[in-house]
């Protein structure tokens, strides 16, 4: 069943890639990239266990963090045109 789950994750990654290529807006592409990143984390965790790699979970954890920070950074860039602090730019969650 672990193999089946890994195949399902791979299929989803392909679907996300199709959306990333189709677009049509840059936000769609970023959404697809974010979904792809989450799937990568799951893939590393599951495949690492299946193949009993050493310390794969650290890689997965780090990838989850990088994926999140990357999404936020790119979105800030889209929103303000730069990644520097903007005063009075509305509320942050």
């Amino acid at each position: 069943m672990l193999t089946a789950a890994i195949v399902a994750i791979l299929v989803t990654m392909v679907l996300a890639l199709i959306r990333a290529f189709l677009g049509p807006t840059e936000y769609d592409r970023m959404l697809a990239a974010n979904a792809f990143g989450t799937k990568t984390v799951l893939l590393i965790a599951l495949a690492g266990h299946a193949l009993s790699w050493h310390s794969f979970l650290d890689v997965a954890l780090l990838y989850a963090m990088v994926n999140f920070i990357g999404t936020i950074a790119v979105m800030r860039f889209f929103e303000y045109g730069n990644t520097r602090d903007n005063e009075g730019s509305g509320s942050t969650p």
């Binding site: 954890l61 989850a64 999140f68 979105m75 800030r76 969650p93």
Partner: peptide
């Protein structure tokens, strides 16, 4: 990893929607 994904997913979604 599980807690991290659940905690960051809404923030990322919100950031994307707001930027769009």
């Amino acid at each position: 990893i599980l807690v991290f994904i659940l905690a960051t997913n809404p923030t990322a979604s919100h950031a994307m929607a707001k930027a769009a």
